[in-house]
Design a protein around this nucleic acid. Sequence first.
DNA 1: GTCTATAGATTGATAGAC
DNA 2: GTCTATCAATCTATAGAC
Lengths: 208, 208
Amino acid sequence: MSEPDTKAKILKTAEELFAIDGFHHTSLRKITTKAGVNLAAVNYHFGSKESLLGAIFDRHLGPLNEIRIKRMEAVAALAEKSGERPGVEEVLRCFTEPTLALLHSDASTGYFRMLVGRSLSDPDPTVRQLFLQRVRDVLELLVDLLCQALPHRSRESVAWKLQFSLGAMSQTLTFQNHGPILGSLAKDKSIDDVIEMLTEFIVKGMEG
Amino acid sequence: MSEPDTKAKILKTAEELFAIDGFHHTSLRKITTKAGVNLAAVNYHFGSKESLLGAIFDRHLGPLNEIRIKRMEAVAALAEKSGERPGVEEVLRCFTEPTLALLHSDASTGYFRMLVGRSLSDPDPTVRQLFLQRVRDVLELLVDLLCQALPHRSRESVAWKLQFSLGAMSQTLTFQNHGPILGSLAKDKSIDDVIEMLTEFIVKGMEG
DNA sequence: GTCTATAGATTGATAGAC
DNA sequence: GTCTATCAATCTATAGAC
């Protein structure tokens, strides 16, 4: 018999549970029970719980990074050709728009959105390392471009302000419909309104 | 016999371990072993692991909230008296300065700084609830004042931008000397420089 | 590939002697 | 208040039959 998509079921279910309950709070038993597969299947298909998280990251961050890099390269090429500096907002949107698009895309990325939000803030070394090694190149390229857009700023200050921006994005991705810190206050906005507010917030802060 | 400060030793040690490893990753055994006290002492003095975290929050957030509220009340009183609106930066500094002062105060709050940073971003319901119930009043008062300073903005958008700001603060408190997302890039700044950059970032974003 | 069964370790909490 | 000892429940991972 054999379900040919046992592996896919594990990926999908683990993504949801990791996003909602966190990596360390989600046991392999919860995943396999909810997915309707055998406990031992996780280690058979992925080797370990850590590798399972890595596979979930790979599945979505691969395509996402490709989009972000293509957009940044296009902006860099245009700037070089025209001889003018790229704009701060233009550069930042190369990164934020594909990321925040997770907020209103189909159900296939609905939980991954929360997982990214968590991972941007999680100080746990395991989660952090698995996540960072998959986004570091993109972030370094983004800092490069931001430094071009802001030639009078030091690289360190640009990096710090990007760090602030990632913190702001993290809150949005994590708590969009999951009880923000000011839950009762800050929820009556459409997703697109929130995305535009966040983008404006980051752009003003970065330019400031 | 009896160490009269067993309770204090547990508080201090737990604060450090919760800050570095996280609440759920820190076992009562690690705490009691490092503190040099008996395992059963935690439940004797605090009742449970959760209550221990609550006691740690209480110890520091009590005084901190008092400072923040006093400053906000002073700003509100001055605005009422003069008939002018309070300034956005003035209002925000009532909150950010006492909080970010944790970054360069003595060793007694060195670890608590990281714990606050974590708690601002942690989606875990246990940590989140214990933390939020101790800062909610302060945040609501802050939103009130920000709405006075920005009368043309809706309360929802002010609340959202405050949420973005808390995300940015969280990154700073958590990763100041613990490996920021752009570790190698964003570390060569003095603490005071980072505090000023963060404040400027938040003010510009909020005003924008 | 899927299953059962279990090893081996760790956890929060407690009972009861002192 | 402090201690030892332990319970009962969890966990990841694996061995081995099918």
